[in-house]
């Protein structure tokens, strides 16, 4: 019983950040911009968020909850700003979108590592390659949390999980129920038609990539606040790529993608519980870590064939070819 609760609690706190990042990816890719940069975007977002939280904590003291929410906001801003590089490269400079994404990731890793060290040394006077955040506080909803199994979804919840759910609902509405969402989805399938309707394809794509930056940044700071309790190069362990796998698995649609994220999140937390239950040495948790990755590959084997990617995905839109 207790095990199932732990699996659910840990599973949810991994699933939701993954999901919100995947939504970012869906925005970008549905608008026609291939986005492998999610990994880098979440890292840079987490860096900005962690830095903001660290500075705010110095000012406001460790009791204040403001740094936590400031971190969320700055992570989104940071991710968004950094995503502009990807947008510029793909839309303005017509770089190969796959290569651009990978480049953005490599640069993100070295840039944040460098900045963390430099800022720690010059501003805070300490030689360190990380920014300590501590694990976020959690809350339990009284009453509902006593129901077996279902109650676990309301036990030890990170506040960011609520933020993510709210943001996810808003982004779902925006993508499927507004004219902006319609234009965005059309830009990825038939940009020429969007252009003919008098809508600026580039502008839509810029906005979509920025959206993916903001959402990835949010996801990044959530990982930093839950799994690693700090910002360091530990953040780059492939969360971004996992969410890309999730969105491919979900066929570039939000609800099926959620399902994929659930599978990854729960496979991971169940694996960890298994290692603990069997009282295996900690080295075995390394073996468990491969579960989401292997699962992704296996699932893709069955699903990739029938998957319909946005038709104009990965192509820079060239007006003159209309």
């Amino acid at each position: 019983m207790n095990t199932i609760n732990t699996i659910i609690i840990n599973g949810m706190s991994f699933t939701l950040p993954l999901f919100i990042m995947a939504i970012g990816g869906i925005y970008s890719e549905r608008s026609g911009v291939t986005n492998l940069a999610l990994e880098g975007l979440q890292g840079v977002g987490a860096f900005f968020g962690a830095l903001a939280a660290y500075i705010a904590t110095l000012q406001l003291g460790s009791k204040s909850v403001a740094p936590y929410y400031l971190a969320m906001i700055f992570a989104m801003i940071g991710g968004m700003l950094y995503s502009l590089v990807h947008a510029l490269l793909c839309i303005r400079f017509k770089a190969d979108m796959v290569i651009s994404g990978v480049v953005i990731n490599i640069l993100a890793m070295s840039l944040t590592a460098f900045l963390t060290k430099s800022i720690n040394r010059t501003v805070f006077g300490a030689a360190s390659d990380k920014i300590i955040l501590g694990v976020s506080t959690r809350f339990t909803v009284p009453g509902i949390s006593d129901i077996p199994v279902i109650g676990a979804f309301f036990t030890n919840v990170y506040p960011f999980e609520i933020i993510i759910i709210v943001v996810a609902v808003i982004t779902w509405y925006l993508l499927y129920k507004t004219s902006f969402g319609l234009h965005l989805r059309a830009a990825g399938d038939n940009p020429a038609a969007v252009d003919a309707a008098g809508i600026d394809v580039s502008k839509i794509r810029y906005l979509a990539v920025m959206m993916s930056g903001a959402l990835s940044g949010l996801a990044g700071i959530c990982f930093a606040y839950s799994i690693s309790a700090k910002f360091s190069s530990d953040i780059y362990v492939g969360y971004g790529y996992l969410s890309i796998a999730a969105l491919i698995f979900g066929g570039w649609r939000i609800m099926p993608t959620l399902l994929a994220c659930f599978i990854f999140g729960f496979a991971r937390s169940a694996g960890y519980q298994l290692v603990q239950k069997l009282e295996l040495p900690s080295a075995y948790s390394d073996l468990v870590m491969i579960l989401p990755y292997v699962l992704t590959l296996l699932l893709l084997i069955f699903l990739a064939k029938n998957n319909q990617a946005p038709r104009a995905l990965g192509e820079a839109y060239d007006k003159s070819k209309r």
Binding site: L36, Y241, A245, L287, I290, L297, L300, I301, N307
Partner: peptide, 29 residues
């Protein structure tokens, strides 16, 4: 995997990167 199942090589190679990393880490440790 790319030829037979149409799996994007970027995604599959990254998945295999991490899988290899963790399995090898396990054996080294």
């Amino acid at each position: 995997l790319k030829a037979r199942f149409n799996i994007n090589e970027v995604v599959s190679s990254i998945m295999l990167n991490y899988t290899a990393e963790y399995i090898i880490t396990f054996f080294i440790n």
